[in-house]
Amino acid sequence: TRVETATETAWISLVTALHLVLGLSAVLGLLLLRWQFPAHYRRLRHALW
């Protein structure tokens, strides 16, 4: 049971790290898009909202 718990903890930390990385890359990508294509971003936002 001790090994299982350790594996579970490792998986949880791995998944958390993955989610953090994905979230950060998504935010960075959005910022980059907004910085590179302001007109396109505004049009996209206008279409979405």
Rank of each mutant, 00 (worst) to 15 (best):
R45P: 02
Y41H: 07
L22G: 09
H19A: 03
T9R: 12
W35C: 13
L18E: 02
Q36C: 08
T5A: 00
L28H: 02
V21W: 00
W49A: 03
L22T: 08
L48Y: 05
L14C: 06
A10I: 10
R2P: 13
F37G: 02
E8K: 05
R34T: 07
V27D: 03
E8G: 05
A10S: 12
T1A: 10
R45I: 08
L24E: 01
H46P: 05
E4R: 09
R45S: 07
L18P: 04
L18R: 02
A17Y: 00
R45C: 06
L22I: 08
L22K: 01
A39Y: 13
W11N: 04
W35I: 15
H46D: 09
H19Q: 04
G29H: 00
T5P: 00
S25I: 06
A26V: 09
I12H: 09
H40Q: 14
V3R: 00
V21F: 13
S25Y: 05
R34P: 02
L20V: 13
L31P: 04
L32W: 06
S13V: 11
S13Q: 14
T7W: 12
L44R: 03
L14A: 04
L31T: 13
E4W: 14
T5V: 06
R34C: 07
G29E: 00
R42M: 08
L22P: 03
L48K: 00
L33Y: 08
G29R: 01
A6G: 14
L28T: 05
L33I: 08
Q36P: 03
A10T: 13
R42H: 10
T7M: 12
P38M: 10
R45L: 06
E8N: 04
R43L: 07
L32F: 04
W35H: 15
V21G: 05
E8M: 04
F37L: 10
T5M: 09
W35R: 15
L44D: 05
L48P: 02
R42V: 08
A26P: 00
L18W: 07
G23E: 05
T7K: 12
L20R: 01
W35K: 15
E4F: 14
F37D: 06
L44W: 08
L18D: 02
F37P: 02
S13K: 11
L30M: 12
